[in-house]
Nucleic acid binder design. Sequence first.
DNA 1: TCCTAACTTGGACTTTGTCTAAGTCAACAC
DNA 2: GTGTTGACTTAGACAAAGTCCAAGTTAGGA
Lengths: 140, 140
Amino acid sequence: MSDLLERLRGRGWRLTSQRRVVAEVLDGEHVHLTADEVHARAVERLPEISRATVYNTLGELVGLGEVLEVATDGRAKRYDPNAHHAHQHLVCYGCGAIRDVHPEGDPLAALPAAERFGFTLSGAEITYRGLCPDCSAARP
Amino acid sequence: MSDLLERLRGRGWRLTSQRRVVAEVLDGEHVHLTADEVHARAVERLPEISRATVYNTLGELVGLGEVLEVATDGRAKRYDPNAHHAHQHLVCYGCGAIRDVHPEGDPLAALPAAERFGFTLSGAEITYRGLCPDCSAARP
DNA sequence: TCCTAACTTGGACTTTGTCTAAGTCAACAC
DNA sequence: GTGTTGACTTAGACAAAGTCCAAGTTAGGA
């Protein structure tokens, strides 16, 4: 994420303090924040940043392919900065915790031609569901 | 779906006209309606049915395992009555069309123990993305 | 036929996200 | 360093999707 700002600058982005703060908040691994959570953390560093700007910036980052949008629960979308390494997600149905995971093989290979209905496939998203260790311990 | 009402009755459900209509609307294959679409179709048969009842009934059907909730786009959830046959979904990113598909093998098998982080896995949902034949033709 | 707990209703409310008009400022030119 | 300008940000109104509640209705057993 450290060179993200340089890449964005190279694409003609104006480097505002707001965008810098959003990029900083998203830095890291296993980060899957909702837009509101990104806003809350951004406000800690830049109190006057608005919700609209956070939504705008997240939308731009997704459009540029720098951040992935993840919809694991039909509630708020989550934003995953780990866009440059193919991965899937493992979600705890107890507490909602999300981990990036790396299954073996190409998921597209499992779908036979007869099951493609003439579609031109471009990818597959897998959400593994389960109970995390903490939630397993809490439910005897 | 035809014997769904019998199963529900067996579980102590009161068989109201509202629940009957919601179940009828959901009958069929490749059905993936939003709650609002279910409500719109239910109103055609029972004009005074309320949105709240549709949401209640859908929630109960999901809780009983008779209907699946599908969140393919971060917008409205969709309801899939094909809950008793394991399947995955193929979604067109042009028009949003959804098909039920049946990939080969067990998706859980692709996730190595080292990538499970101590979770107790219970299932996996796969969303294949692509362009359907109609949308492919429309985008030269 | 009556009774009652279960069900339904309309509307208020919440959450999540989008849009707009007006004001601000990063980056370039000089 | 200063000025300029179009891109960016802001607050708040709006919209979509979903939840909650008190009051009224009703399915199904007694």
